[in-house]
Amino acid sequence: MEKSQGTVVNAQDAFCHAREMAVIQAASQGDKYAYHQLYEQHVGRVYALCYRLTGERAMAEDATQEVFIQLWRKLSNYNGQSKFSTWLHSVTANVTVSYIRKQRGWLKRMFQVDESLAEQPAELSADTVDLESYIVRLPERARMVFVLHAIEGYRHEDIAVMLGMATGSSKAQFHRAKQLLKEWMGYEDN
């Protein structure tokens, strides 16, 4: 019985995968209707990652649009060896990081805004907000590193390349993010 259930599930997975591959192939050949289907299917995941990385609704919306504009040209690079959602996540992270760097001016963010935000005391109560609310309040570099490492599972070595920083800086920013979260969540510092 269990075996037959497993077979049904596998068949369903295979069908979904085949259908998704057909939509991707059509979109990569210029079918905008198929591309719209892909957009509808994945916009929630793409926007969620953009929102966490940018920390702002308006910028996340712009970055999401940028991801789907660039994805149109990159679709033919998808070879089907990994899950499409995994590949799209990687495209989203890369496009969004470079979008943030382009839009805000890396040096300006690094030397002015980033540090000033870190000095701000937490105004939110640990009992009333979720982790998402804290993440978007983190200083930019600490936030990007935290999202990419703790949530998306990137290695510090890869994050360092993506963000143009040393591996040690990525680790330091991750530590900084955790310290701030710890403080904001009401835990005592050691």
């Binding site: 905008k32 916009v43 929630g44 969620a48 609704r57 919306e61 979720d130």
Partner: peptide, 27 residues
């Protein structure tokens, strides 16, 4: 606690406005 909170994070979050028109124009 942090790990629990990370696991609780939703995979999806929908934008508050329709972004498709902008994507279409960009294309």
């Amino acid at each position: 606690h942090l790990q629990q909170q990370i696991h609780k994070l939703p995979n999806e979050r929908m934008p508050e406005r329709d972004l498709w028109r902008g994507v279409e124009l960009g294309l």
